[in-house]
Amino acid sequence: MTNVLYDLPGPKARRRNAALGVLSVLGIAALLAWIGWRFYDTGQFDAIKWDQFEYADVQTELLNGYLTTLRAAGTAAVLALALGALLATGRLSDHAILRAPSSFVVELFRAIPLLILIFFAYYGPIQLGFKIGPFWPLVFGLTLYNGSVLAEIFRAGIISVARGQSEAAYALGMRKTQVMISVLLPQAVRAMLPAIVSQLVVLLKDTALGFIIQLPELLYAGKTIGGRGSFLYPYVPAYLIVAAIYIGTCGLLSWFAFWLQKRLSGGRRKIKTTADPVPLTDVTRAV
């Protein structure tokens, strides 16, 4: 689509585009130079601000933060997939008595801000006199929210399998459970895999909310390291490193989702399924 928006440039347009190109390169360069100058001017390039990253203790601190982030994301991912499967089964059920509560739960947890869900799990038990750390409240919130979103992805995947498939299976005398497990699910999983992976990226990003309830995850480690006065408060280097780790991890996972999506939509090694690919959700929710 993008190349139909403008004509093939002639000599005049090429000159104009070149001029605009130079201008925009200059503009972007000026922006980067200004940031670089702010760095230089405030002494961000000074060795003392970067020194502590050479210490094994500080590296361990960062690594522990990263592992806590991954542990929270992994635990929540497993639980959210399980909850999502349960809720999707409920919403696809033939019985209204299962359908209605599942739909209610899915709609409710998608509408309440994730941070408020986490606060419920964190401050609620404290109110009732229990003492729990910040890890499980974070996992609880992530599970409820992402479980609800995943339930919708699962449902869309099952629905997108061509109707003839289940009709044929019923005609062969299969039971409902058999149709679901042997015919619908294997095809649906392929169709929804990219969407699931991209939702897991969202989940991984949202573990950073643990920072607000003081879970010592990656972002928190960045704050601790950046807050050391003896190194002249190296917040900038610390957060740059943290950002690189987040962007690297999430970028890799997103790339994997896109790769899966591409394989679904065609190519030499196309994944076989009669289902339409479920659109990636992180564009519509994400935020």
Binding site: K205, L219, V242
Partner: peptide
């Protein structure tokens, strides 16, 4: 930006 958590964007602006 898509691969950066919003909390990190906040942290960058507030602390860094």
């Amino acid at each position: 930006v898509r691969n950066t958590p919003l909390t990190l964007v906040f942290a960058l602006l507030v602390f860094a």
